[in-house]
Simulated assay, not measured.
Amino acid sequence: MSDLAIRPASPVGDLLVMVRRATRLTMRNGDALISSLALPIMLMLLFVYLFGGAINTGTEYVTYVVPGVITLCASFGASLTAPIVTNDMTNGIVDRFRSMDVRGTAVLGGHVFASAGRNLVATTLVLGVGFLIGFRPSASLLDWLAVAGILLVAIVALSWAAAAVGLLAKTPEAANGFTFFVMFLPYPSSAFVPVETMPSWIHGFADNQPFTPLIEALRGLLLDKPVGNSPWIALAWYGGILAVAVLATGRLFKRRTA
């Protein structure tokens, strides 16, 4: 008997069922799973071994680039929530859930929590590959916990934003456009090169977009260097994104299911 055959008795039960369902969908979608794991690793190897020798960051390039690749991995994986949500909205399964009195927050929350779990696994894999090619963090236990907390907030916020895009899009193909947008944003940031090496006209954007403070916070914490106010700026960015995304998904879900 499937998880959905018996209605859970509480909103928490609904959410747990939807998390299990979303996790199973992820495991069945081999192409998306492989892409979310392989792409960041391929980019890291590409930058370290092909471009790293020509980029001066004041330290070993692998040490500089791994925090940026972790962020790219997390953001790319979170963006995959968009086409998954769109597919749910267009294949009739949501109507079945509503007939069973399953709340929209449980359906969307299931996708978000599954995304968080998927991305934490992918991030761990990227870190493991980073260790193999020479990344040597000097973070304390508290630093590692701070890294995990900040990264989790960012993943959840981006996953909720992706869910909102998934509710707006009419087809999974259209929702995939969010993936390209999220993949682009880490490039004009401090992910792969210092911002000061970029043309001056792009400094304002690179310094004041959500990925730069996140990357600088992760880099400082992992390498036991001063982080300044980067963690708080990152939390403010992603806390704001999360709040807007949660409100937006609530309204968009009601509109799509009215």
Results as ranks from 00 to 15, higher is better:
191 A>K: 09
254 K>C: 06
164 A>Q: 06
122 A>L: 06
258 A>N: 13
128 G>L: 15
177 G>E: 02
190 S>L: 13
121 V>I: 15
195 V>F: 12
213 P>E: 07
191 A>D: 14
149 G>E: 07
212 T>H: 11
198 M>C: 03
30 G>E: 06
29 N>P: 05
135 F>I: 05
5 A>D: 12
175 A>H: 01
122 A>Q: 12
130 G>V: 10
210 P>Y: 15
246 V>S: 00
155 I>H: 00
110 G>R: 02
33 L>R: 04
113 F>R: 04
197 T>H: 03
66 V>R: 03
236 A>D: 00
58 G>D: 09
157 A>F: 01
172 P>R: 09
136 R>W: 03
80 L>K: 09
205 F>I: 14
53 G>R: 05
94 V>H: 05
228 G>L: 11
203 H>L: 09
250 G>R: 15
84 I>V: 12
102 V>K: 05
110 G>N: 06
26 T>S: 10
171 T>Y: 10
136 R>Q: 13
210 P>Q: 08
6 I>C: 02
48 V>R: 09
216 E>Q: 14
161 A>I: 07
148 A>Q: 02
207 D>N: 13
75 S>A: 13
121 V>H: 06
16 L>Q: 06
199 P>S: 07
165 V>A: 10
172 P>S: 10
89 M>E: 03
106 A>F: 02
189 S>C: 14
235 L>A: 12
230 S>W: 15
204 G>R: 14
232 W>C: 04
56 N>R: 08
79 S>C: 04
29 N>W: 12
120 L>R: 00
175 A>W: 11
133 I>L: 02
96 R>D: 01
137 P>Y: 03
241 I>R: 03
16 L>I: 14
238 Y>D: 01
106 A>C: 08
19 V>G: 01
255 R>H: 09
198 M>D: 04
45 L>F: 10
59 T>L: 04
90 T>I: 13
156 V>F: 06
246 V>M: 11
114 A>P: 05
181 F>T: 15
164 A>Y: 15
150 I>Y: 05
195 V>R: 12
201 W>V: 15
129 V>R: 10
92 G>D: 09
155 I>P: 00
220 G>A: 11
29 N>E: 13
23 T>H: 12
258 A>R: 12
164 A>H: 08
234 A>R: 02
258 A>Q: 12
65 V>L: 13
240 G>I: 11
224 D>K: 08
20 R>N: 04
130 G>S: 03
139 A>I: 04
200 S>R: 14
60 E>H: 07
250 G>W: 13
227 V>M: 04
238 Y>M: 01
190 S>N: 14
159 S>P: 02
65 V>H: 09
26 T>A: 14
51 F>T: 04
227 V>S: 09
202 I>N: 03
198 M>I: 09
125 L>K: 08
77 G>E: 05
222 L>D: 03
69 V>Q: 07
205 F>N: 03
115 S>K: 02
56 N>Y: 10
14 D>W: 05
69 V>E: 03
163 A>Y: 14
104 G>V: 01
